[in-house]
Simulated assay, not measured.
Amino acid sequence: MTRSLASLIGLAAALTACGVPEGPIRTAAGNLTQGQVDQIVRDCGAPAGTITFDGPVIVIAKHEDIHITGCVLKALEATGETSLPSVGNQRYEVPEKQ
């Protein structure tokens, strides 16, 4: 009984903490305008409506082509207006032992 309860708690924690990886990306819009967002969408070849405003937040729909989504994210990052973390390949560097 204790083991199954622990499994259920772990599953619930994983589902609530991780979010839906297929879901849209939400980030602060900063001072971005609809015109700027529409230009980014066009420049990246993404379909209209890929980026929408939800109050002070922009919602970015992921595209099936990862290159289009990457282009949109990099362009948004380049504006300096969003709260997106850096975009790109990142790897953990193991500190050298002394």
Rank of each mutant, 00 (worst) to 15 (best):
10 G>E: 07
12 A>T: 14
13 A>L: 00
13 A>D: 01
13 A>F: 02
14 A>G: 15
14 A>Q: 10
15 L>N: 10
17 A>M: 11
17 A>R: 08
17 A>C: 09
17 A>Y: 06
22 E>K: 03
23 G>I: 03
23 G>E: 01
24 P>M: 04
24 P>W: 06
25 I>A: 05
26 R>E: 04
27 T>D: 06
27 T>R: 02
29 A>Q: 03
29 A>F: 03
29 A>P: 06
31 N>W: 09
33 T>K: 07
33 T>A: 07
35 G>V: 13
36 Q>R: 13
37 V>I: 14
37 V>A: 05
37 V>K: 05
38 D>L: 11
39 Q>T: 10
39 Q>V: 08
39 Q>K: 12
40 I>E: 07
40 I>S: 04
40 I>W: 06
40 I>L: 09
41 V>W: 13
42 R>W: 07
42 R>M: 08
42 R>G: 00
45 G>T: 06
45 G>C: 08
46 A>N: 14
46 A>Y: 10
46 A>P: 15
47 P>E: 14
47 P>V: 11
48 A>V: 15
48 A>D: 15
48 A>N: 13
48 A>T: 14
49 G>K: 11
50 T>I: 10
52 T>Q: 14
52 T>K: 14
53 F>K: 14
54 D>S: 15
55 G>N: 10
56 P>E: 13
56 P>K: 12
57 V>C: 06
58 I>Q: 02
58 I>G: 01
58 I>W: 00
59 V>G: 05
59 V>S: 12
60 I>W: 08
60 I>H: 04
62 K>T: 14
63 H>I: 08
63 H>P: 03
64 E>K: 10
65 D>T: 05
66 I>Q: 14
67 H>A: 14
68 I>L: 12
69 T>K: 00
69 T>D: 01
70 G>P: 12
74 K>M: 15
74 K>R: 14
75 A>D: 12
77 E>T: 13
78 A>E: 15
80 G>T: 02
81 E>V: 01
84 L>M: 04
85 P>N: 04
85 P>Q: 01
86 S>M: 09
87 V>M: 07
89 N>P: 00
89 N>A: 08
89 N>G: 06
90 Q>A: 12
90 Q>D: 00
90 Q>Y: 12
91 R>H: 10
